[in-house]
Nucleic acid binder design. Sequence first.
DNA 1: CCAATTTGACCATC
DNA 2: GATGGTCAAATTGG
Length: 332
Amino acid sequence: MEKADVLLNELTQGRELTNLLRKHLHPSSRPEPETRQVLLDKILCSYDKALSMLNCSGSTSISMVETNPKVSTVQDSPGSHASDKKYMFKKRKTTCSGWSERVRVCCSGTSLEGPLDDGYCWRKYGQKDILGSNFPRAYYRCTHRYSQGCLAAKQVQKSNDDPTILEVKYRGRHTCSRGRASHFIATTVPSTTEYKEKGDHSRQQQQLEEKQKQSKEILLSFETGLKVKTEDLDNGDDIFPSFSFPVESGGVENGLFVSPATSESNYFSVSPFHMGSFGLGQNVQTSESDLTEIISAPTSVTNSPIVDLDISSLEKLEFDPSFLSDNPEFFY
DNA sequence: CCAATTTGACCATC
DNA sequence: GATGGTCAAATTGG
């Protein structure tokens, strides 16, 4: 299906839904408020889809924050790992500095499945309980750090406010060739969600409770649409100009939620490197620091054929750089 | 056997 | 001394 057709479809649908809503709002009609709400949600969703297509190369990719270049406070030179040991500790990055982006991924399903998969291979190298945080922070670095000198790293931590939100901070740029085929299915994911308290036997119970809670929240989050929030951290680095959040397979069909457990692909993926790897990142500067975006994932309400398009478009994004350079406007 | 994760210890910074 | 980031030995899993 042509992208334009899908776009048209979404817009048309939005229009129709708006008309429907107007009827419902008419004094003579007497609809339940829920109906209005549902309509409203659908409308918003349609427009979100349309906008996301316009803005993001027709896929669910999300143009993302660009922050200041500061990349090379980089800690170590590639390949310096072997003999260094303890005295080679790098300068500690003061809190937050050095971490280029903070991405908040709000997706209950994600929490259930484990942290998001951004299409790269990460190796966990540490975990810390953070003061004032209910959840530990996990530290990851690129699997190819030593084999290819790739310095990309990320931190993942559950949000204090809302455990269904994962806060991910990225640092460094992937210089490796991607270690994984560009499918976005999370197969094995690092276990940041299951933190261990030493000798804590109530952990399983905690997890169980959490899952129960989350399954409720899944419904809620799908009612309101999945959200991915991104925010500028500290005018940090220009490392991750864009993120994409491919969402495959409808978690919702005709307003009914389809359990993500049966649809393994229903999750978010954050890929901050898609554009950077094309060397376009520096040009993507999206207006100022006020780039906080709230993006509604297109997974909701309508049973849209967009799905397949998303994936294929994404593939295009990844394997056809000319597509990007030919369409710079997609990065706003 | 190899790669990934876990986890206590170490170090830099505040 | 408290805290956050990293190391690396031990453990786990495929």
